[in-house]
Simulated scan of single mutants.
Amino acid sequence: MIQKLKAKGFIYNAQVGTLEGTFNGKKVFISIKSNKNKVWRIAVIDKTGRDKGQIKIRFNKLCQQFDDNPKYYSLKGIQKLSDNDDISYEMTVHHKQIQAVYYQLPHDRAQNRKVWFIIGEVYGKYRIIIFYDNKRNQAHGEDL
């Protein structure tokens, strides 16, 4: 997987321990998690922090892109944020995790290929973190 991403122009950043490059038009870090040499999660993290208005627009645009992409489906219906949603208040006071969840086709009962993204906040700047999960490759306690 790392070689495939490097072939697409991503470079390894030894200071951070992730790959760095452009994904879906944005500068990002990419972290890959594996279990027995099989990838079970890819995390795509915005490199640039945004204010709460900008991150709401970015979140809603991502929701629209997944809604419009025939390779994905949602079990939750509309997941966009409304103009009235105060993400800062919800995250700080109610400790709410603001997220959207999609599944990759073909549809399977176990929904093993999940894509979900959250808004993360560090020092007042917000970032989107997208997770591509393949549950089939996760550890399931076999090494306990």
Rank of each mutant, 00 (worst) to 15 (best):
M1D: 05
I2C: 08
K4G: 14
L5M: 13
A7G: 15
G9E: 08
F10A: 13
I11R: 15
Y12T: 11
N13C: 14
N13M: 14
Q15L: 15
Q15W: 13
V16T: 15
G17M: 12
G17F: 13
E20R: 09
E20A: 10
G21Y: 00
G21E: 00
F23M: 00
F23Q: 00
G25M: 01
K26F: 08
K27L: 15
K27G: 13
I32H: 02
N35E: 10
K36Q: 11
N37C: 09
K38S: 15
V39I: 12
V39P: 09
W40E: 09
R41D: 13
R41G: 08
R41M: 14
A43G: 15
D46Y: 06
G49P: 03
G49D: 04
G49K: 02
R50E: 07
R50F: 07
R50G: 03
Q54I: 03
Q54L: 07
Q54A: 14
I57F: 03
R58N: 12
K61N: 14
K61Q: 14
K61M: 09
Q65R: 03
F66V: 01
N69R: 05
N69L: 08
N69M: 07
P70G: 09
P70M: 07
P70D: 14
K71W: 06
K71E: 12
Y73F: 10
S74K: 03
K76S: 13
K76L: 14
G77I: 03
G77M: 01
I78S: 10
I78H: 06
Q79C: 00
K80W: 02
K80F: 04
S82C: 01
D83V: 05
D83C: 01
N84A: 11
E90L: 12
E90F: 05
M91S: 05
M91C: 03
T92Y: 10
V93G: 01
H94T: 01
H94K: 06
K96M: 08
Q97N: 11
Q97I: 10
Q99S: 13
Q99K: 12
A100G: 02
L105D: 10
A110E: 14
A110D: 12
R113T: 06
W116R: 09
F117A: 06
I118G: 12
I118M: 13
I118T: 15
I119H: 03
I119F: 03
G120V: 14
E121Y: 08
V122K: 12
V122F: 11
K125G: 01
R127Y: 00
I128P: 00
I129W: 01
F131C: 11
F131K: 03
Y132R: 09
Y132S: 11
N134I: 07
N134D: 13
N134A: 04
K135E: 11
K135C: 06
K135D: 13
K135R: 12
N137T: 00
Q138F: 11
A139I: 04
A139G: 10
H140I: 10
H140E: 08
H140F: 05
G141M: 02
G141A: 04
E142V: 08
L144P: 13
